[in-house]
Simulated assay, not measured.
Amino acid sequence: MTTLPYTPTPATLKEPAISRMLFADPRLAPLWLLLRLYVGYEWLSAGWGKVTNPAGVWVGEKAGVAVSGFLNGALAKTGGDHPDVAGWYAWFVQHVALPNAAAFSYMVAYGELLVGTALVLGLFTGIAAFFGGFLNANFLLAGTVSSNPLLFILATWLVLGWRVAGWWGLDRWVLPRFGVMEQPALLPADPVNRRQGQPVR
Score class of each variant (00 low, 15 high):
1 M>C: 13
2 T>Y: 10
2 T>I: 00
4 L>R: 14
6 Y>H: 15
8 P>R: 03
8 P>E: 00
8 P>G: 07
8 P>N: 03
9 T>Q: 08
12 T>G: 00
14 K>S: 12
15 E>R: 13
16 P>V: 14
17 A>G: 01
18 I>V: 15
24 A>T: 05
25 D>N: 15
26 P>L: 09
28 L>T: 06
30 P>T: 11
32 W>M: 04
34 L>I: 15
34 L>E: 08
36 R>A: 08
37 L>C: 14
37 L>A: 09
39 V>C: 10
40 G>R: 08
40 G>F: 13
40 G>Q: 02
41 Y>C: 07
43 W>F: 15
46 A>P: 02
48 W>P: 01
48 W>F: 11
49 G>P: 08
51 V>W: 12
52 T>P: 13
53 N>G: 06
56 G>F: 09
57 V>A: 08
59 V>T: 02
59 V>A: 04
62 K>F: 11
64 G>A: 01
66 A>T: 04
67 V>L: 10
69 G>F: 05
71 L>Q: 00
72 N>I: 03
72 N>W: 14
74 A>F: 03
77 K>D: 05
78 T>I: 01
78 T>L: 08
83 P>L: 01
84 D>N: 14
87 G>Q: 14
89 Y>P: 03
90 A>V: 12
96 V>I: 05
103 A>P: 08
104 F>D: 04
106 Y>H: 13
106 Y>S: 07
108 V>T: 09
108 V>E: 04
110 Y>T: 05
111 G>E: 03
112 E>C: 04
112 E>I: 13
116 G>K: 03
117 T>L: 14
119 L>A: 05
121 L>K: 08
122 G>Q: 06
126 G>D: 01
126 G>K: 04
127 I>G: 02
130 F>M: 02
131 F>G: 01
131 F>I: 01
131 F>C: 02
133 G>S: 06
135 L>M: 14
139 F>Q: 04
140 L>M: 14
145 V>C: 09
147 S>W: 10
148 N>H: 08
148 N>R: 01
149 P>N: 13
149 P>H: 13
151 L>W: 09
151 L>A: 06
152 F>A: 15
155 A>Y: 04
159 V>Q: 00
161 G>K: 01
164 V>D: 09
164 V>Q: 06
164 V>Y: 06
165 A>Y: 02
165 A>M: 10
167 W>K: 00
168 W>D: 10
168 W>T: 00
171 D>T: 07
171 D>V: 07
174 V>S: 07
174 V>G: 02
176 P>Y: 12
179 G>P: 09
179 G>F: 13
180 V>R: 06
180 V>F: 08
183 Q>L: 03
189 A>V: 15
192 V>A: 13
196 Q>M: 10
196 Q>D: 10
199 P>G: 03
200 V>M: 14
200 V>N: 10
